[in-house]
């Protein structure tokens, strides 16, 4: 399927005319998602859904096997004193940790995602990026989170970015490809939309806002703009693309606002971890605390939850 998409899109690249974004309009629409009143029962469902959509992430120079082991354990033992909770969707690590994480997660059903293409800057030669990706796939990564060359994109070399994504997609094989736009460096919503369209046409299975290393990261305005790109593509072709806001979503309230937005922009089909993810490291604990608060009425303390 991706092969067909690639050929068609290469042909049409110049014709894909990304619409201009009305920033004020986006802000107003986004503000409205935050005023929806959510009843307790739906809130609880939403919270559990958020948990199942989390890509538990550690992407630091100081990552050790110990740290990754602890995070993998947490991925499928979110709160052992509280049975009936889902596991998170995936753990997200550097390529060097993929094989280790894969071993730790064996039969848990939790996927392993690996960043690649010289994450987070993406400033490396093409063959290095391809090798980086191939290594992660060979080590067993189920998903690849690549970064685009923002420098090239901002310089107007769209074909370069397109080809880059398409070549990485080829290397991915069965692994699903998430394309990180690093919207914090793209400056305008117009650029975000253009980059989203570009990534989708080049073969992305998911588009993702940020690396988490740059502020601002996944603001609702940016996520909304990307969701609209997904919607327009789906309306035109019937092909679904996944969405992953990452960075800065650390409270359950923000997670619920995002879910409201996904539901109202894309619909129920996207409300599962096949098509929507949160890239986050500290969100899980806050959601857990909110779930227990909703069920018991007692406000919780981070003292009694695992340290991220």
């Amino acid at each position: 399927m991706s092969q067909t998409r690639k050929t068609i899109s290469k042909f049409n690249l110049q014709m894909v005319d990304s619409p201009a974004i009305d920033k004020v309009g986006v802000e107003e629409r986004v503000a409205r998602f935050q005023t929806r009143s959510i009843k307790n029962e739906s809130k609880l469902q939403g919270l559990k859904m958020s948990l199942s959509m989390i890509d538990l992430t550690t992407l630091e120079g100081k990552d050790t096997p110990g740290k990754v082991k602890q995070m993998c354990y947490k991925a499928h033992h979110l709160c052992d004193t509280h049975p009936g909770l889902p596991t998170v969707a995936a753990v997200c690590v550097y390529p060097s940790m993929v094989a280790f994480a894969k071993k730790e997660l064996k039969d848990s059903g939790v996927k392993v995602a690996s960043v690649s293409t010289a994450f987070p800057s993406g400033q490396a030669p093409m063959d290095v990026k391809l090798l980086d990706t191939r290594f992660a796939v060979d080590e067993g990564a189920d998903e690849i989170d690549m970064v685009i060359s923002r420098g090239k994109f901002l310089a107007g070399e769209y074909s370069f970015v397109f080809d880059e994504i398409a070549s990485i997609k080829e290397v991915c094989g069965n692994a699903r490809l998430k394309v990180i736009l690093e919207t914090g460096e793209l400056a305008t919503l117009d650029n975000v939309r253009k980059a989203s369209d570009l990534a989708i046409h080049a073969g992305a299975d998911f588009i993702k806002t940020s690396t988490g290393k740059i502020q601002p990261a996944a603001t609702m305005q940016v996520t909304y703009t990307m969701l609209m790109a997904i919607k327009d593509y789906f309306d035109k072709t019937g092909i679904m693309i996944g969405m992953k806001p990452a960075g800065g979503i650390s409270t359950s309230k923000l997670a619920l606002h995002n879910l409201v937005m996904v539901k109202e922009v894309l619909g129920d089909a996207w409300l599962n971890n096949e098509w929507f993810r949160f890239g986050a490291s500290s969100l899980a604990n806050d959601v857990l605390m909110q779930i227990i608060k909703s069920e018991t009425g007692i406000y919780q303390s981070s003292d009694y939850f695992s340290i991220d």
Binding site: G297, I298, Y299, Q300, S301, S302, D303, Y304
Partner: peptide, 8 residues
């Protein structure tokens, strides 16, 4: 009640 049951 809220204050005295608050875990934090």
């Amino acid at each position: 009640d809220t204050l005295s049951s608050h875990m934090d």
